[in-house]
Write a protein that binds this DNA or RNA. Structure first.
Lengths: 344, 344
DNA sequence: GTGAAAGCGCTAACAG
DNA sequence: CTGTTAGCGCTTTCAC
């Protein structure tokens, strides 16, 4: 005898009543409810999730899909941890649990997702690392699984998304650098087909065009979105005969490696080259200080969670005006890495 | 009509046979099995996890419990991402899925764990951030949930564990620094009651004693296990009248902040102070280069997975000589941060 | 080698 | 307000 049955027997009432009492149904005698709740605490009873899921067709679990292995993630160390924390403050209100679905680097993400969905693992999903064309979206839409993505894509099935304002970052950065006399400006982009790379490079080109300048294809540096990638970019850049005078770093993590690569050659940010990047817990400790964009990861998480809940039938009424698609703008923190002005 | 029932109807055989065919039971006609497997692929059938779990009492899921929020983890995402990747190479052989159980920073870890277990969420667990006294161990042992911990604890219920060799790091570091003429050596430790802090500080003291030296309590710096914590330590250290000549950094992430704090005061590692720390993707790009310990996170993950499986009845026969408790030693990579020798 | 049927723990519909 | 019961999808006896 185990589970709800044991609890019922212990209290000498039926399992139906126990279930109703625990699930807050109104049609239960308050005294009965009190006894049930107390006994549940005493005996440490918690409903078995499998039984409940099987019956209700829901799991109360939301999955955040991410790839494991270090080269891939691209966000800095604690990026996701902070986002998770924001998500959870929202989910806690609805007794939803967030788990990270870890797709091994040796498994195809699309296959992994299919498996997770078919198993009925989660009630909703959050996808990150959205690709320029992302088949996962279509699959989920066909299966009518609620999901939200952190990142846009050319694939559009009407799902909600949140994304950082890469166009805004590009525009502001370019305007700022041009105003300081820079004409030869480089940009970085991730090596793979993740969507943000396209957004960032394209908008940089447009912004430059607005000033009558062109984005030299030689000045688009592809890199792994990690420290080593940044170091590589620095080496490549330093080897050029006609070096850029400024560069935009699109990934958070690459600044550290990039700085190191420069310093080995005695090239100093804010004097010999202008850098605009993104703030992170690590970049905070670079010297000269980095001029870069910052955002509240926690707030981003909260918005992600609300956007997802707004698409789930069971919760949508609670989030009537959650923004289904939103570009999340970031603030520029001025540092010393682009402090100098070029002579005219 | 859905699930296995639909598949059976489609093939015009019974659901029992379908189940047996899919689960590789021997008592199935090979031709039948072939048809079932093919139909399953065509229709994209994957067994519902809740139904299966309810029946079998297992979930085929292993949970890795971690706390969200940035200050707490101390290790970066990338640390865990690499460990996960190692774990998954082992689990893939047994069709086990690894998920990260994300305990919100606002929830008590012990309560969270109870909830997860009672729900029957996972067949086994991996715990990190082990505390000096960790009630989670006793709880899991009582419930007979297989688990392994990344980190030791004074709490001992006979569970398997893996841990980094903090004593070895302390001993080697101290010996090395003393040999270079250092007598006044500082150590860091995490601010909370995580077990590794105790191990590291205690062994440092013993190692010093071996050289006839004492660990000055003033030279034990508690810090948040992140970049900001390292910066704080540097500030405190610089403010002292009788500064140490060397320091051991126990956390991976603090080196960056610590370097920055020093450089603001013009204090240079390897000249004005000796530093021994731990290598990480970020520390790789510090200058002067950090002398520090390194390990293969992926191999650590593999060992963790094997240690866990060795305790699970369903798999133990496959891992007869997995080491149930192992201190994982790290290699010292010589850098420039402790290059100098003190005058006698 | 296959089909029929029980039952895992739970919730919801229905009867009282 | 409470008890009884069907059935969620699946695996596993037990007959045949």
């Amino acid at each position: 005898m185990t589970g709800i049955r044991r609890l019922a027997q212990h209290l000498d009432i039926s399992i139906g009543t126990v279930s109703r009492a625990l699930n807050g149904r109104p049609d239960v005698n308050e005294e009965t409810r009190r006894r049930v709740l107390q006994a549940a605490t005493e005996l440490g009873y918690v409903p078995n999730q499998s039984g409940r899921s099987l019956r209700q067709g829901t799991t109360n679990i939301i999955g955040f899909m991410m790839q494991t292995g270090t080269e891939i993630t691209g966000q800095g160390d604690t990026f996701f941890m902070s986002v998770f924390d924001g998500i959870q403050t929202v989910f806690a209100r609805h007794r939803l649990d967030l788990v990270a679905l870890l797709c091994s680097s040796s498994e195809d993400p699309d296959d992994y997702l299919k498996r997770v969905v078919a198993r009925g693992f989660a009630d909703g999903l959050i996808l990150s690392a959205t690709q320029r064309h992302d088949p996962r979206f279509e699959f989920l839409a066909k299966r009518k699984i609620p999901f939200v993505t952190l990142g846009r894509s050319l694939t559009d099935v009407g799902q909600p998304w949140l994304d950082l304002d890469f166009e805004g970052m590009a525009q502001i950065s370019i305007d700022r650098l041009v105003a300081r006399g820079h004409r030869r400006i480089a940009v970085t982009r991730p090596h793979d087909d993740v969507n943000l790379g396209h957004l960032f490079v394209d908008q940089s080109a447009r912004a430059l065009a607005g000033h009558g300048l062109a984005l030299d294809p030689e000045l688009i540096f592809s890199s792994l979105p990690n420290e080593a990638g940044g170091y590589q970019v620095a080496r490549q850049l330093l080897a050029m005969t006609d070096r850029p005078t400024a560069i935009l770093l699109v990934n958070e993590t690459i600044a550290i490696g990039f700085y190191r690569g420069l310093s080995e050659a005695g090239v100093k940010p804010g004097r010999d080259i202008a850098i605009i990047g993104r703030q992170s817990p690590q970049s905070h400790f670079l010297s000269p200080s980095l001029t870069g964009f910052t955002l509240s990861r926690r707030d981003l998480g909260i918005a992600l969670a609300e956007a997802l809940l707004a698409t789930m039938p069971a919760f949508s009424h609670l989030y009537p005006d959650a923004d289904p698609r939103k570009v999340w703008s970031e603030d520029l923190i001025e540092g010393e890495s682009d402090a100098h002005t070029l002579p005219a």
